[in-house]
Amino acid sequence: MTRSSQQRLRDELVASLALMAAVAAVPLAVTNDYWLGVLIVSMYFVFLAGGWNLLAGYAGQFSLAPATFAMLGAYGTGLLAYHWQVPAWASIPAGILAAALIGMTLGRIVMRLRGPYLALTTLSFAEIMRIVIGNSYDFTRGDLGLSVPALTNNRLVWYYVFVATVVLMQLALYALLRSRAGLYLMAIRDDEIGAASRGINTAFWKTAAFTLSTALAGLAGVLYAHFSSLVSPELGLILQTGLVICMVFIGGIASLVGPVFGAFLVYLASEALREAGGVQLIVFALLVILIARFFREGLWGLARRLLERPAP
């Protein structure tokens, strides 16, 4: 990767860390449990958006199942604790691993599918998983939801666990994207046939992107499960995936900071619009359409253009 693109990636990392520093400072001013909870759920979406952006924004694979893998991770840790009393230190990594392994398998199955075919296949997978979990009452307690051990009830502890994990994810994504892996993923996104003809093992790297992306979704799911101490099939609603996609597009796809920014913005806005009910998704969808039409790089791209504008 050349100097200018490395510089750009570093700017994005710095911007996202600055945003997280501001988020880390919020509890100094806000002690209200409800709003801390809202920010924690925003960070749950940061993992989902970050993972989906890796897959869709950098590797060009538009999956419609990010929320499903959060649900799978959450049920992974939840079921292990519920049926076999597995302690959290083991069930949490197991939940992430389960999501990643299922993600890898799905990645291999959809390997040859592109565009709408890939989207539709992952969408069917998402719906099947949600329905299976919802209907397996004896094993999962179905739509009643499964209670998961809460590791602590201290909201502030959870808050900083989420903040620290988001920072770790950003650093890991940065390291990944500035390595040759980042170049290969973008090459596959831009031209898969061209990438193969240059000697890039496209099957391997696409599977890797699927696996990492679903591992991040699984991470979101396990953290959320123990934070909220209840998981239900609603985690995997297609509506949730819709939110994730809106977050990434509104914040700025294919950038390191866009999805982080977008997740906070969209989730906070959806809380503010909660009273208004169903209009939330309409508002976000319209925003996404506008952004896809007029500034493909989202709000981050807009911000960067304003910052880079030469002084008069």
Binding site: T2, S4, S5, L183, M186, A187, R189, D190, D191, A195
Partner: peptide, 12 residues
């Protein structure tokens, strides 16, 4: 690779 810089194309 259209959305990568010309140099990055070569480096890739």
């Amino acid at each position: 690779f259209r959305r990568m810089s010309a140099l990055d194309n070569l480096v890739t």
